[in-house]
Simulated assay, not measured.
Amino acid sequence: MFPGFYEEIHEEFREVVREFVAREVTPHYKQWDAAHLMDRAVWEAAAENGLLGLAVDEDHGGMGLTDYRFRMILDEELARADALGLALALHLHDDWVLPALRRFGTAEQQQTWLPRFLDSSFIASVAFTEPGAGSDLRGVRTKAVRQDDGSWLLTGQKTFIGNAVSGDGALVLARTDGSDVKRRGGAESFSLFLVEKEDNPGYQVGSQLEKMGLKASDTAELFFSEARVPAENLIGGEGRGLEIAKEILPQGRLAVAAGAAAVAEAALGQTVDYVRQRTAFDQPVAEFQNTRFQLAELQIELEAVQRYLAATVEAFDAGQLDVVGASKAKLFIGERAKSMLDTCLQLHGGYGYILEYPVAQAYLAVRLMTIFGGTSEILRETIGTDLLRD
């Protein structure tokens, strides 16, 4: 980010993150990428270094770091280390599931779950998307049926679920209105459950999905066949699932925007280094006017992205970021980052197409940023509808 954005306390935190990445991530990341799975030990090490659940308050054992700049430092250092799969896995845990629990969980739920988000004993997934319901959550068909003892039986299928294999459970959106699951439901038709995998035979993880990039972050389908969910695992009350999903959406979309900006910044730095070292026609590639012109455009784009992100973070930290504002940030930053990575790869020439080069991995990773958390088309619809509202 640009000078002045971070304060001294953030840079002190950065040193902790940088040491953690150098010691616990960099030596192992290629192995995790090849295996399509990260060792549980990295989550445990992150917990030991205070890097999980940053926003959890002191009453529940956390540090209460709600200033989003701390989360951004994690993204930046992982992007510089080409460990983008871990960055995504942390986002799912901290930027999607944790906010639902912090904001809508009961005192008893927070007392039970928040310490587990800190100590790595519960790694979370977000299970909203289904084969027939992506951005349109009212099309969700997974259903939960209340039993006489107050518990729920969960039945359905979810897809594109990050941390599905390595995680311990998921925040699941399910229909609880008892209606025919073939029709779209109203806002009150859905509820959110924190569902544990352990000792729950109805909770089944499908085979890993083969992705273009971010392979160290495991992704799979989830199948629920009358998976039992205790009554106390209902988050926010019955019928509030879509309302809560909308409330946590700004942080989720901010997280994607921040991740895209971090990837773009790291890729530009790597590209500058590359064109200085690479020669063509007996001179460094950096000495060609076309190279300098493209780098100039990339730098301007990066600064525009960072300034937009800074304003969005300021709004979030002040409690003023809504879905439309977060959608604007994700759309602008995600699309700019995608374009920037295309240019960075081109400046690497043939080497940019080789997967062992960081720019190729970044190119594949940033492509997800215009899909995950709401496609660019859905974001444009959200922004346009708001603009035309009376």
Rank of each mutant, 00 (worst) to 15 (best):
F193P: 00
G206P: 09
E232M: 00
E335W: 00
T26S: 13
F122G: 00
Q277V: 12
R175L: 03
E265T: 15
A258L: 01
G85H: 00
M369D: 12
A264G: 08
I383V: 13
C344I: 03
P99I: 01
R253H: 09
G252R: 08
L51C: 02
E226H: 12
A231K: 09
R292L: 15
E130D: 09
L321F: 05
E377H: 08
P115N: 11
N49I: 01
M38A: 04
T291C: 13
A286Y: 09
T312W: 12
Y363G: 03
I9S: 05
L194F: 08
V205A: 00
G374K: 06
W96H: 12
A255G: 10
Q109S: 01
V181M: 12
L194M: 10
L345Q: 15
Y351Q: 15
G53A: 09
A127L: 02
G239F: 08
I248G: 06
L90N: 07
V17A: 04
R146T: 02
G237Y: 13
F316K: 04
R276L: 14
R240F: 13
F332L: 09
R253S: 03
K338P: 00
D67T: 05
Q306E: 15
F332H: 02
F128A: 10
L114I: 08
E24C: 06
L249C: 05
G334Y: 04
T385F: 10
T106D: 07
Q277W: 08
E196L: 07
P358F: 05
V16T: 15
W32R: 06
Q157T: 11
E335Y: 02
H36T: 03
A337L: 01
K246E: 14
L92P: 00
L98T: 10
M369N: 07
G237H: 14
E297M: 06
R228Y: 03
E19D: 11
T129K: 10
L51F: 02
G167C: 12
Q289D: 15
S225W: 15
E356D: 13
D168S: 09
V126Q: 10
L209I: 14
A216E: 15
R183V: 12
G105K: 07
G206E: 04
Q289L: 14
D342C: 03
V21P: 05
S191C: 04
F281Q: 14
D168Y: 13
F193N: 00
D57I: 03
A267E: 02
A267Q: 01
L52E: 05
V324Q: 01
F128I: 04
A41Q: 15
I300C: 02
A144R: 09
F5V: 11
A124T: 15
E297L: 04
A22C: 06
I244Y: 15
P131A: 09
T155E: 07
L54W: 10
A286H: 08
A360Q: 08
A45L: 06
L137Q: 14
L101M: 08
G269E: 15
S166C: 12
L242M: 06
V42D: 02
F288L: 10
G85C: 00
L214S: 08
D33W: 09
D282A: 07
L347A: 12
D282S: 06
I235E: 09
F288H: 13
A360F: 08
A89Y: 04
